[in-house]
Simulated assay, not measured.
Amino acid sequence: MKIAKILTTAALLLSALTIKAQTDTNALLWEISGNGLEEPSYLFGILKFIPADKYYFPENAEAALKKCKVVATETGLDHHSRHEMNKAAHLEHHQSIDEFIGEDYYKSLKSIFTTKLNVSDFKFNMVYSKFKPVMLSTTMTRLALGENIKFYELELTSKAHSMGLVTVSLESIEKEITMLEKMTLESQTNALKHSIDNFDEQVADYKKLVDFYKDGNLHQSLEYTLHPIENDEKFVKHFINERNAAWIPKIESYSKQAPTFYLLGVSHLADEHGVIAKLRNQGYTVKAVQ
Rank of each mutant, 00 (worst) to 15 (best):
T167Y: 03
I101R: 03
E176T: 06
L143S: 01
E103R: 08
D121E: 15
Y106I: 06
E155G: 03
I112S: 03
E181Y: 02
D121N: 13
N148T: 07
E174Q: 13
L170C: 04
K175F: 12
A160I: 08
F131T: 01
Y152E: 10
V168R: 10
S111F: 09
V127Q: 00
T139W: 04
I112V: 14
Y106H: 13
T114W: 07
I101A: 02
K159P: 02
T167I: 05
V119G: 08
L170D: 03
S172P: 09
F122H: 14
V166E: 15
A160T: 07
I101S: 03
M135P: 10
E147F: 04
V127G: 03
M135L: 14
I177S: 02
T115P: 08
F113Q: 01
K107N: 06
K132Y: 06
N118A: 10
R142D: 10
F151W: 11
I173F: 08
I149A: 03
S111Y: 04
M140R: 02
D104I: 14
D104C: 12
T138F: 14
L136V: 11
G164P: 08
T114G: 07
L117A: 00
L145R: 07
I173E: 12
E181L: 05
K116S: 04
A144R: 06
E103A: 09
V119E: 12
V168K: 12
I112G: 06
G146E: 06
L145K: 07
T167L: 03
E181P: 01
M135F: 09
S162Y: 01
E103M: 07
V166H: 13
L170Y: 03
K130R: 07
I112W: 11
K150Y: 06
D98L: 11
Y152N: 13
T138Q: 15
N125A: 13
V168E: 10
T141Q: 11
S158E: 14
I173Y: 08
V166N: 13
E99Q: 15
E174R: 12
T115Q: 15
M135E: 13
R142H: 12
K132R: 15
E171C: 02
Y128D: 04
Y152S: 14
N118G: 04
L165G: 06
Y106T: 05
I177K: 01
L145I: 12
S108A: 15
L136C: 10
S137T: 04
E147D: 15
T157C: 04
L170T: 05
S172V: 04
E147I: 12
V134N: 05
T138K: 14
K175Y: 14
S172F: 04
T157E: 00
F151H: 12
L156F: 02
T141M: 13
D121M: 14
L143T: 02
E155N: 05
S137C: 01
V119Q: 12
G102Y: 05
I101C: 00
L156G: 02
L165V: 11
E181H: 06
D98H: 10
G146W: 04
L109W: 01
K123C: 01
D104L: 14
S111M: 03
K107G: 04
L165K: 13
S158P: 12
T167Q: 02
K159G: 04
